[in-house]
Structure formats: structure tokens, C-alpha cells
Design a protein around this nucleic acid. Structure first.
Length: 765
DNA sequence: ATCTTCTTCGTTTTT
DNA sequence: CGAAGAAGAT
């Protein structure tokens, strides 16, 4: 590494002039964001204005100009995905030199790294375990039981949320306001929090919230340690600053008090995680909190056409609490976002499906199409429709790999072997698969351990030598303990993935799923294999466990071109040529609960969500509202979302069928038959029967609950399956063919019952 | 200890 | 309407 040139010196500047090809192609504002290196900088980056490019280029610039070496730069993101992408892009920009960025990661990952080095200063041992939400709740249940709290009236989940919210605000048990602490379980809230923290310390464990909070405490109580990191991080960068919560803000501020070179990038208009503790205020107050801050606004949008941008900008302008940006594009006007009214969610799915098929026929890539919903229950209807149409899709944001039951069980086995005092892991698998060691046995074990201050596994090892347990249980437990001993002895002698395989085999866990005849069992076994495979990427068991405790995401190996279905929240940061935005109805979007719980702030966050949705589209946006929707199993007549009326008329096109529905009763352009609410004429069946015209189904009133759609695909293709054949379906699992009609099969699924499906979705089992 | 019926409660989600 | 969790039955 070359000697560091004096900042701003001639050599420095000359170098920047000559060796900065990466600056080419940046617009003046982006360039300013990249080149303003000294002191605090706030980059207000509107949607699609090249935010990530600025961040990565800035890092490249810091390194190329010799301002900092990669290990002297702290770069923080919220998700592992964002961290990974940034790493890749920096690598592409700087080459291998940029790969060694040890301090690029999520808040949690970086905090963990720091905490492990100084664990003893906050009452932990370096090898502490990180509990996930599931473990956290199980532990809280124990705490509630120990405190003799009725966990029906005061569920562990509620307490978990409460404690999380305190931790998000940087409050340890001593700092929680008395009023708030008292609100839970008749005044026991504070004591329960303290008891939970004490339990965590005994288990040598932290939850996710602790990673930040304990790190903050470490800095507060140990100025020398803090100084060391303030000194090390010459430059700090934060992505998605609008999503930071109070602890994260305090954490950043402490570190930034060293060199003051903090660069935060964010967009107040895209703050959609307030309900999770994010403080938009952090971004609104930046200039106040970091005096002398340079503020750079990125307003040149490179993503969307003018009409899409116009619609989104007009909508977000209705928010009062914002810094205010005016996005513009130099691109073409394009197509106006189209608003369509439909009768119900079924018609909505049908129309979206038709539109997609038409686009697809026009050579539009399915990968560039997304359906963005407000709530995940909306997804089902689209899935069903797409299965019927034979339209390939992928659902993004389903249950994550490491959250799956079988994976968590398998991991618990590994944890028991790697961390003998991991009580929660042990409790998870003592009786999985069922071996007759139920609640009462575990209760005895726990009492034994508590009396002697021992972890459960150690207690179990001792108890099998006594006669406190019934012979049968003692025998089973003894066998399990000798299994553990055997596996533990193997650590380090054979590859850890092989060890994992043996553990799963010898514990009977693999067998347990093999015997299971349910539809998911095969997939679960597949997942277990995938888990073992993924272990090979890590040098040893401990580093593997460390990785998965923080990185709970895996990109599913989804092959082929597919339409994406996801929530609006999940879509942040992504872009698609064409975006479908269904369900724009009062109550659903904006969501009633948001309004009820948070009033105006809630409404504004919902509006930002709408803004995020529209700005995902590069070229086309289709917005839908249904007049009737089934909520909690009951059909309800709905009113078009207020957001529809807030879209500037110049930038949207209202589809014919939507205009027809105009009643003239209300001020809305989109008022529909809402005036009929309560009348029996408003029932979907009656209306459907009355309705004529394009898209109408058979004309027979269909009762809600009948999910099979019309099988419109026709084929004279020879059937490949015969009645009675065992088959496999991507969604419904295994089943037997009951009838064949062209390419349409009626299948009795083992789990899902009788369904009519297209042959192309079926494989021989 | 485990299987079955009953009740409850329904945004958004990362680490 | 349906999933999930908890009390009740075997």
C-alpha cells in the first residue's frame, strides 16, 4: 500500500484527477456525494437516483485516493443481502483490493464482531450464543412461568415485542420509563425484562436486540474501547439511513464522534419500517445532530418514465412530514399508470393474469414483472390463478430457509454438540423425534439443573446415574447422552458436514421424516441435505453456527423466468419493467390498523409504501381496486383507496370499467357500488349473476370458498398420466390421479384434497 | 405422552 | 374462512 498522501494536497488531488475513471458518468450531484469526504454528509437519494452507485463509488474513491484503507472504513447496511451486493459492487469497482472490507456488514454483524472481542466487559463470554425469535419466546415463556404470570392474559409474544421495542430505543431494564414497564402484567413488566436479561447472561446468550444494546453499553462504560474504534474507523457510511432506530442512531453517533466522517444515505420518502422502530426523525434531524453537515440531494431519476415518476411524486407530495425532493427524469414520458376497478379479488387476479399473458406474448420477460401486495394473504389468489393459467411465478419472502422447522431442529442438534450449555437447543430436541421424554421429564431435569446451577445437558448426564427418573426415561436419556458424547468426540476428527450427516442419521431425525407420509416430508429431507451441503462452505462447525445465527436468509435456487409476487415491503430496493399494484382499497391500503394505531403518522407511512410501490416500475404500472373483498372469510364491500384520488390526473389513465362504476355519490373519481353496502344485492353471487361483459365467468353465482378457477387452457395433447397414477405437484404435494381430461387432471392430493390442475404442473411420483 | 377437538384471531419483517 | 395454539380425551 502506497503512503497516504496529505488530504487535499497536490499529490492527492492530482491522483484523484488521473486515477478516477470510476467517477466518469456520475452526474454533478452524485459526484459531490462521492467527493465530499470530510465531515458529516447526508445524501438524500430519491428512488432510482443511483444511491448504491454513490455508496460504492465513494468507498472506491476513499481507497483509490488513499484516504483510507479498506479495513479503516465502516460501512453499515440493514440486511445481509444489501451487504452482499455492496461487497460485490465494490469488488467490481476496485478489484480484489476492495474485497478485504472486514467492516462492511449489517449493524448486527458488526456489533457481534465487536462484542465478541470484548465480551467479558459486558458480562458475557466470547462464545456467546445468539438467540433467534423462536428461542427468545421460549425463554420468555419460562420467565413468565417462573414469575407466576398468567401467560394466557400476558402472552410471551407480547412481552417479546415490548422488550424488543425497549431495546430498539436503547433502553436497558433500568432505563425503561416506569409507566411503560408497569403496563405489562400488572406492573411486572420491568421486573420481567430484568429477569429475562439475567437469564440470558446465565445462558451466555444474547437476543438480536442485545447485539446493538450491549455494544452500546460496551462503548458507554469503556471509553478506551470506544476510542479504539473511533480511531480505527476513519470513514463511516450508512445505507438506508431512514430505517435506523434509536439504538442504531446512538451507536453511530458514538463512533462518529471520533473523526466525524459519517456519510448517511437515505430517503425519508421511503421510510416504511416505522412500526419496527425505525425513526424517520433520524434523517429529518441529521443536520441538527451533526452540525456542519453537507447535504446532497439526488433527484435525477434513472429508473422510471416521466408519467410513473409524476404519479408517484404527486402522491408523496401529500405527506406533510418530509424533507421534500423533486424527482425528475430526462427520459421519455412513457405510458401512464393505469387504474382499474374490478368486482372482486378473483376478477383482479384474472385481469392481472390476462395482462401478464398479453405482455408475455409481446416478448416481455416474466422476470421483469412483479405483483406487489400490501398483505401476504393477497398472494394466494394470484398463485391460484397463475397455477390455473400455467404461468410460472415465484413468491418472494416466504418462510426463510433457516426458519424452517426441520432446519431449526437440525441446527439444535448441532448446537448441542458444539455448545454443551445451550439449554434452549437441548430443550428443542430432547423429544424430537418423539422418544418419550416429554414435559414432565424436562421439568424434573430443569429443576435439578436450577438447584445446582448447571446447564441441562450436564444435569441430564448426572441424572442418568441417579434413580430420580423412571427407568424407561432414564434409559432413553442415557442413550441420548452417550450419543452426544460420541458426536462430540468426533468434532474435529471428521469433516463437520459429515458429522452433521451422522448426527441426523443416528439421532433418528432423518428417519423421522422418512416415515412421515405428508406432502412436505420429501421437501424437508431435501432441505436437510441442502443444509449439510451448505456447511461445506465453512471451515468448521463453530463458524458455520456463527454464520447462520446472523444470516437468516438464503436465495432459493429459483430457476427459469418467473413473475415475482411479493409484499410492498419486500419490494423496496428492487425494480421491474412492469409492476402490478392490486388491492388499493380503504382498510387494506391504507391498512386500517395503521390508521387506528398511528393516526396521521400511520397514514403517511402507508402513503410512502404506495410511493415505494409505484417507483419500483420502470415502464408500466397497473393499479387495481376491488369493490368486494373477502376479509376474515367474510365478503365485504370496500371503498377505493384515498391514494387513488391523490394520484395526479395528468399522470394516470383510468380504465374504462373503472369509470363505469362511478356512482356520483361521493367526491371520488373511483366511487363504486359502495353505496349498496348492506344490501343483499351487493352479494358477490348476485352481482356476478347480473354482470355481463368481458371477463365474466359462467354466469352461475359462485359461492366463496370454491377456489378452482376456470381451466381456460385447451389442449389436444396426449395425456401422459393414467387414472390411479401417483403424481407430484409443486404446490399441493403428492396425490393420485382421479380423472384425465385432455391436459386437465383431477387429482386426489394426499393433503390438499381433490383439485383440478394442469398436466404441465404435475410430475410422476 | 400424545392425539384430537376447540378456540382464537387475524399487516408489514430484519437481524 | 383457515392456521395456529391450547385445553381436553385417550
Amino acid at each position: 500500500m502506497a503512503p497516504t498522501p496529505r488530504p487535499g494536497g497536490i499529490a492527492d488531488r492530482a491522483r484523484a484527477q488521473i486515477e478516477t475513471p470510476y467517477l466518469d458518468g456520475l452526474n454533478p450531484e452524485q459526484r459531490r456525494a462521492v467527493e465530499t469526504l470530510d465531515g458529516p454528509v447526508l445524501v438524500l437519494a430519491g428512488a432510482g437516483t443511483g444511491k448504491t452507485r454513490v455508496l460504492t463509488t465513494r468507498i472506491a474513491h476513499l481507497v483509490a485516493t488513499g484516504r483510507a484503507r479498506p479495513h479503516e472504513i465502516l460501512a453499515v447496511t440493514f440486511t445481509n443481502k444489501a451487504a452482499r451486493e455492496m461487497k460485490e459492487r465494490i469488488g467490481a469497482l476496485v478489484g480484489p483490493a476492495g474485497e478485504g472490507m472486514p467492516w462492511l456488514g449489517t449493524f448486527h454483524a458488526i456489533s457481534t464482531k465487536i462484542l465478541r472481542r470484548h465480551a467479558e466487559l459486558v458480562g458475557l463470554k466470547s462464545g456467546f450464543t445468539i438467540l433467534d425469535t423462536d428461542d427468545q419466546i421460549r425463554l420468555l415463556k419460562q420467565v413468565l412461568q417462573a414469575a407466576d404470570v398468567d401467560d394466557k392474559r400476558w402472552p410471551a409474544r407480547g412481552l417479546a415485542h415490548l422488550i424488543d421495542s425497549w431495546k430498539n430505543r436503547g433502553l436497558d431494564p433500568a432505563r425503561v420509563p416506569a409507566g411503560e414497564a408497569g403496563a405489562f402484567a400488572n406492573g411486572k413488566g420491568g421486573a420481567l425484562y430484568a429477569a429475562y436479561q439475567a437469564r440470558l447472561k446465565t445462558l451466555n446468550a444474547t437476543d438480536f436486540g442485545d447485539l446493538l444494546l450491549e455494544c452500546l453499553r460496551l462503548f458507554r462504560d469503556n471509553p478506551d474501547v470506544l476510542a479504539q474504534y473511533q480511531d480505527r474507523f476513519r470513514y463511516m457510511l450508512v445505507d438506508e439511513y431512514q430505517d435506523t432506530n434509536v439504538v442504531q442512531y446512538l451507536w453511530l453517533r458514538m463512533l462518529a464522534q471520533g473523526r466525524h466522517n459519517l456519510c448517511c444515505v437515505g430517503d425519508d420518502d421511503q421510510s416504511i419500517y416505522g412500526w419496527r422502530g425505525a425513526e424517520v426523525d433520524n434523517i429529518l434531524r441529521f443536520e441538527h445532530d451533526f452540525p456542519g453537515a453537507a447535504v446532497v440531494k439526488l433527484e435525477n431519476n434513472y429508473r422510471s418514465t416521466a408519467h410513473i415518476l409524476g404519479a408517484a411524486s404527486g402522491l408523496i407530495a401529500k405527506n406533510e412530514d418530509r424533507l421534500g425532493k423533486t424527482l425528475f427524469t430526462e427520459g421519455e414520458a412513457g405510458e401512464k399508470p393505469r387504474v382499474s376497478g374490478v368486482w372482486d379479488s378473483e376478477e383482479e387476479a384474472r385481469q392481472v393474469g390476462e395482462e401478464i399473458e398479453q405482455l408475455h406474448r409481446g416478448k416481455h420477460s416474466l422476470d421483469q414483472i412483479a405483483i406487489l401486495v400490501r398483505a401476504s394473504f393477497q398472494m394466494r389468489e394470484f398463485e391460484e390463478r397463475f397455477i390455473t393459467l400455467g404461468l410460472p411465478y415465484r413468491v418472494i419472502g416466504g418462510p426463510r430457509f433457516y426458519e424452517r422447522l426441520e432446519i431449526r431442529d437440525a441446527l439444535a442438534y448441532l448446537r448441542c454438540v458444539a455448545q454443551p450449555d445451550d439449554d434452549l437447543a437441548f430443550e428443542r430436541i430432547v423429544n424430537t423425534p418423539k422418544r418419550g421424554l416429554g414435559d414432565s421429564t424436562v421439568g424434573i431435569l430443569r429443576a435439578f439443573g436450577r438447584d445446582r446451577g448447571l446447564p441441562l445437558i450436564a444435569s441430564a448426564a448426572m441424572m442418568v446415574e441417579t434413580d430420580e427418573l423412571k427407568p424407561k426415561q432414564r434409559q432413553t436419556l442415557r442413550a441420548l447422552m452417550s450419543d452426544f458424547a460420541r458426536w462430540r468426540a468426533l468434532v474435529g476428527t471428521i469433516p463437520h458436514s459429515e458429522l452433521a450427516e451422522r448426527i441426523l442419521e443416528e439421532s433418528g431425525y432423518t428417519d423421522f421424516w422418512q416415515k412421515d407420509r405428508s406432502a412436505e416430508a420429501a421437501g424437508r429431507l431435501e432441505n436437510l441435505k441442502e443444509l449439510v451441503r451448505s456447511m461445506e462452505e465453512f471451515p468448521d462447525l463453530v463458524s458455520f453456527l456463527e454464520h447462520i445465527s446472523l444470516v437468516m436468509d438464503t436465495e432459493g435456487a429459483n430457476t427459469g423466468e418467473r413473475v415475482s409476487i411479493m409484499t410492498l415491503h419486500g419490494a423496496k430496493g428492487l425494480e421491474f419493467d412492469t409492476v402490478f399494484l392490486p388491492g388499493w382499497e380503504e382498510g387494506l391500503f391504507p391498512h386500517q390498523r395503521s390508521l387506528d394505531d398511528n393516526g396521521k403518522a400511520g397514514l403517511e407511512e402507508e402513503r410512502r409504501l404506495a410511493y415505494v410501490g409505484i417507483t419500483r416500475a420502470k415502464r408500466r404500472a397497473f393499479i387495481y381496486f376491488a369493490t368486494n373483498r373477502r376479509i376474515h372469510g367474510m365478503w365485504q364491500t370496500t371503498i377505493p383507496s384515498r391514494f387513488l384520488d391523490e394520484l395526479p390526473e395528468d399522470h394516470v389513465e383510468v380504465a374504462e370499467n373503472a369509470r363505469e362504476k362511478r356512482s356520483g355519490y361521493g367526491p371520488s373519481r373511483f366511487d363504486t357500488v359502495g353505496a349498496f353496502a348492506g344490501s343483499s344485492y351487493a352479494t358477490p353471487g348476485w352481482q356476478r349473476a347480473q354482470r355481463q361483459g368481458a371477463g365474466a365467468t359462467s354466469g352461475v353465482a359462485r359461492l366463496p370458498g370454491v377456489i378452482e378457477g376456470e381451466l381456460i387452457a385447451k389442449s389436444t395433447q396426449q395425456a401422459h398420466f393414467t387414472v390411479g397414477a401417483r403424481v407430484m405437484h409443486q404446490k399441493f404435494g403428492p396425490g393420485a390421479v382421479a380423472a384425465v381430461d385432455g391436459n386437465k387432471l383431477t387429482v386426489d392430493f394426499d393433503r390438499a384434497g381433490r383439485k383440478m390442475v394442469l398436466e404441465s404442473f404435475i410430475q410422476a411420483a
